[in-house]
Every structure is written in C-alpha cells, then in structure tokens.
C-alpha cells in the first residue's frame, strides 16, 4: 500500500498554492520533498493526513480515498501515520513524556507500563533520554523538534510524514536524525515523506527526491538522477543558483 496524491489543487483565498500536484510514494521508500520556501510543501503534506482538504483532486492513503472516509475511519488511517510538525507543535500543558504518550493512549489494550516503556524507547531513539518530565517550554528549538519526532514515531506507524525534521539542528544531531529516518525505513519498513531544504540530508536518506515548483511536482527521481538532471529550475534549486530559476532573477 502507498500514499498517492492525484491532481490536487488547493488555494487559500485567491492564492493558488497547489495546481495539480501529483505524487506517488511507494511502499517502503523514503521520499524527500524539496522546493522553495512558501512553495506549498507543508500544505501538500497536510493533505495526506487530512488536515487540509483539496479543492479538487484526490488523496489516497493505504488504498483508501481520504475524502470518502467517515471520521472514525479517518482516525483509523491516522493511527498508521505519524506526522512531524515543522514547528514541533508539542502540547505545552503536558510534559514531554505525556506528549509522546498521547498517540499510544489511543491504542486499545496498551498497558500503562507498555506506554511508559515505549515513551522511553522513543525518546532514546531521538537522543533525548530522560527528558520525560520536562515541559516543552524548557527545551531548546532542536530538542522540541526531536520530541515532536519521538511523538510521531512512538506508535510505530506504517507511514511517517516529516516536515523539515532536521532544519535548525546542528550537523551532528542532523546526522542522528537522518540515520533514524533510514533506520525507520530499514528496520520498521516505514514509508516516509520528508520535507527538507537540506540537499545533503536528502541525498543521504531518500530513495527518491521530488521537487515542488509552481504548485506541481517539477521533478521526481533518485538522488543520482536529480544530480544529473538538465532541468534548469531543478539545477538552480539544488545548486543554489537563482539565476537558473527564471522568477528569482
């Protein structure tokens, strides 16, 4: 099973953000979604989990069309999808441990001891061991980000959607998180979509890279393919050369 967006259109007011966005993420792969700031990467990601509804077009998760689902069915689908928010979105009235445990408490039949164990394991994976009793306000930006990641992966979801999981982290932590993404795929067979600005990260962890430009997927291919592409817009973006991308001149 996989994730599929077909000809998705989305506008906010008169601002058309997605203009026929089509992308398929294959089972078991990690796909990096790149694109300029404000191009609509977060918007695209939010469509997958039903936080935003398309004006036109379809979104399929696990062979089910999101628009057809009853609320309870949608929540069933969401239990299989972890979402890492760009700005962490931790519940600030709860401790980090309670944050990470939130999704676990929705799983029927999980005991308190199992929940605590899973919380500990998740925090260890993101390199935040022993942070259970801290409050989000006591964490640095990067620590918040990792706590958000721990919350998303705690339920061992089949899919993980990462919205810039490594932006703003130091190079070492960045590598830790990239490796975690790779491990999620290899050991837990997680299908992932990772929004990122960081090409090194994308090359390191992604099986394929898709570039969002002007509301559509401009390019999709393996890291090797993207490095060889002749497309000026794509080259301009990955090499950081605005002169190649017309409208940035």
């Amino acid at each position: 099973m996989s994730l599929r967006l077909v000809e998705v259109h989305k506008a906010f007011g008169s601002k058309q953000i997605l203009k026929g966005f089509t992308l398929e993420v294959r089972e078991g792969e990690t796909l990096a979604l790149i694109g300029a700031s404000g191009s609509g990467k977060s918007v695209a990601l939010k469509h997958i989990i039903g936080l935003l509804q398309p004006d036109a077009g379809e979104v399929w998760v696990d062979g089910r069309r999101i628009a057809d689902l009853e609320r309870s069915e949608l929540y069933e689908v969401r239990r299989n999808v972890g979402y890492v928010f760009q700005f962490a979105a931790l519940f600030d009235s709860m401790t980090v441990g309670e944050n990470v445990g939130m999704g676990l408490r929705r799983i029927p039949g999980m005991s308190e001891a199992e929940i605590q164990e899973r919380v500990r394991e998740s925090l260890r994976l993101v390199d935040l061991p022993g942070f259970e009793d801290r409050y989000p306000a006591e964490l640095s930006g990067g620590q918040k980000k990792r706590a958000g990641l721990a919350r998303a992966i705690a339920t061992h979801p089949k899919y993980v959607l990462y919205d810039e999981p490594t932006t703003g982290l130091d190079p070492l932590t960045k590598t830790v998180i990239d490796r975690l993404t790779i491990r999620m795929r290899k050991e837990l067979n997680v299908t992932g979509v990772a929004v990122t600005h960081d090409m090194d990260s994308a090359y390191r962890m992604a099986d394929r890279i898709a570039m969002l430009h002007d509301g559509r997927v401009r390019f999709v291919g393996t890291p090797a393919e993207i490095q060889k592409t002749e497309d000026r817009v794509v080259r301009g973006f990955i090499e950081g050369r605005p002169e190649l991308v017309g409208e940035y001149q």
Binding site: I49, L51, A89, M102, G103, R151
Partner: peptide
C-alpha cells in the same frame, strides 16, 4: 494559542477529535 501553534492539528494527527 493551541490553534496558531498547530497543537489542535497535532491532536488530529494523533487521532483525537
């Protein structure tokens, strides 16, 4: 505050209404 910091969206993604 929960709305603008996406905490309400986060509840949704964790399957809470």
């Amino acid at each position: 505050t929960m709305r603008v910091t996406e905490q309400i969206d986060a509840l949704e993604t964790l399957a809470y209404d």
